[in-house]
């Protein structure tokens, strides 16, 4: 028989992660709910996941690619920008979702207990599904432009997704904790994310910054997008060093996020 002991809560411990694992089914149900609801509420349903990056790709290709003649490391601009947008969309939507996960589910948080980390995790799972659907377009474009990706992509793709996941999760958890207390986070965030897009080599190649490209490397998404292009288009060797730095950076970010989140967690139900 299980025994529950409730005490004034300390900071987080390894037991918390065990608990998250025990509740994995709930994370699945939340993700399933979000996907299902979106499918029912919107006319185009799940196609929305494709539509967004696709339209962005078309607009960027016209203005930056054809008109502004943005360099793209010798790769056709549409596929160049789409590969960047794919990861970018995953990151930015996961970050937004995570940072709203607590406030958006206040009615559940105040009524029933489960490890709160489940909410941001399931939010990211939903975005991951979007990523999967949107990548179908990329596969089509690869055929169209007849690119054969480096087989290493199969190895590196999970790693890149994992880094993106941790980056969005780390930042998102931190923001979610602040969002509970200061509700203007929600209004600042879209603006902030838009700024981030321009300091990430999505619509331009990292090489554009020349000698200053190391500044861009501080942004973990730089490493992810660069490596994905290197593997997809086989145009440059994968910069493992840069990827390593990104990996360490997001792990630190994630730890900070979790610490903040767990620290704020005990107040959630009293504040929201």
């Amino acid at each position: 028989m299980t025994t529950t002991i409730i005490k004034p809560r300390k900071n987080f411990s390894l037991k918390d992660f065990k608990e998250v694992w025990e509740y994995k089914e709930l994370a699945y149900f939340f993700a399933w709910r979000d996907i299902k609801v979106r499918y029912k509420q919107t006319f185009v349903g799940i196609a929305w996941a494709v539509f967004q990056p696709f339209m962005a790709m078309v607009v960027f290709s016209i203005f930056f690619g054809s008109l502004a003649k943005m360099p793209s490391d010798g790769i056709p601009y549409p596929i160049f920008v789409y590969s960047g947008l794919l990861f970018w969309q995953f990151f930015s939507s996961a970050l937004t979702e995570t940072s709203n996960s607590l406030v958006g589910n206040a009615n559940i948080i105040t009524k029933v207990y489960f490890p709160r980390l489940i909410l941001p995790i399931s939010g990211i799972v939903t975005k991951f599904v979007d990523f999967g659907i949107a990548s179908i377009i990329l596969v089509g474009m690869m055929f169209y432009y007849s690119f054969t990706p480096d087989p290493i992509i199969l190895l590196i793709l999970p790693l890149l997704l994992f880094i993106t996941f941790m980056a969005a999760m780390g930042g998102g958890l931190f923001l979610a904790a602040i969002n509970v207390k200061y509700r203007d986070v929600r209004y600042v965030l879209p603006y902030f994310i838009q700024m981030l897009l321009f300091v990430t080599p999505v619509i331009y190649p990292a090489s554009i910054a020349g000698a200053y490209s190391w500044i861009l490397a501080l942004n973990p998404m730089t490493g992810v997008i660069k490596a994905s292009r290197a593997a997809l288009f086989d145009n440059a060797p994968i910069n493992w060093e840069l990827l390593g730095i990104s990996f360490v950076a997001v792990v630190i970010l994630l730890i900070i996020g979790i610490i903040f989140f767990k620290k704020a967690e005990r107040q959630f139900a009293d504040i929201v």
Binding site: K7, V112, Y113
Partner: peptide
């Protein structure tokens, strides 16, 4: 709310035997 673990107590301890 304390018994349901929604919010932690400030002092004291609650022990529950079984699935809650």
């Amino acid at each position: 709310k304390l018994l349901s673990k929604i919010t932690p107590p400030t002092t004291g301890e609650i022990r529950m035997n079984g699935r809650v």
